[in-house]
């Protein structure tokens, strides 16, 4: 009888340790996802602002957004920086993750639509991303959409466990 009580306690402890370990892994994973997204947004925003004139010009060449290119030329990098900030600041992380999901889905849908339906496809990305082909860019964005979804799910799990 005594032994079985000890066994149950041991099992409980093991379960708690396992739960804590899983939680730690998930928190680390979430940190990694947020870090990757932050890095992407800061890098993308800085490259765009660094060569702002070229970015604005490339947006203007897009048949879909030529009319709003001046507004978007500022809105996109500023939006990316705001998203990066919300991902760094833990209490606003869920908003940041939803924002990332939205903006990455928007970019993915935009690239897909440009490749499928547009009569002219200009490049409007900066830095190292400009060396990617449009198809590679599409897969790159899809990967980040998946990361954002994973981030939201992990964030949700960790919040519920806590």
């Amino acid at each position: 009888m005594h032994d079985s009580i000890i066994d149950t306690e041991k099992l409980d402890n093991r379960a708690k340790i396992l739960k804590t370990k899983t939680l730690v892994t998930k928190v680390n994973l979430l940190e990694a996802i947020c870090f990757l997204l932050t890095l992407l947004f800061v890098y993308a925003a800085v490259s765009k602002l660094k060569d702002f004139n070229t970015f604005q010009l490339q947006l203007g060449q897009s048949p879909y957004i030529t009319n709003f290119s001046s507004l978007l030329a500022w809105a996109v990098p500023v939006g990316e920086l705001v998203l990066a900030a919300t991902l760094i600041y833990k209490p606003s992380r869920i908003i940041g993750l939803y924002g990332s999901l939205f903006i990455m889905s928007l970019f993915t849908a935009y690239i897909f639509s440009m490749l499928e339906f547009s009569y002219y496809v200009p490049c409007s990305c900066g830095g190292i991303l400009s060396s990617l082909s449009w198809e590679a860019h599409l897969w790159f964005n899809i990967a980040f959409v998946c990361l954002s979804v994973a981030g939201i799910l992990i964030k949700l799990t960790t919040s519920l466990i806590k």
């Binding site: 957004i65 849908a109 935009y110």
Partner: peptide
């Protein structure tokens, strides 16, 4: 996101 792109 898809709706915005579809509209454009």
């Amino acid at each position: 996101a898809v709706a915005i792109v579809s509209f454009l």
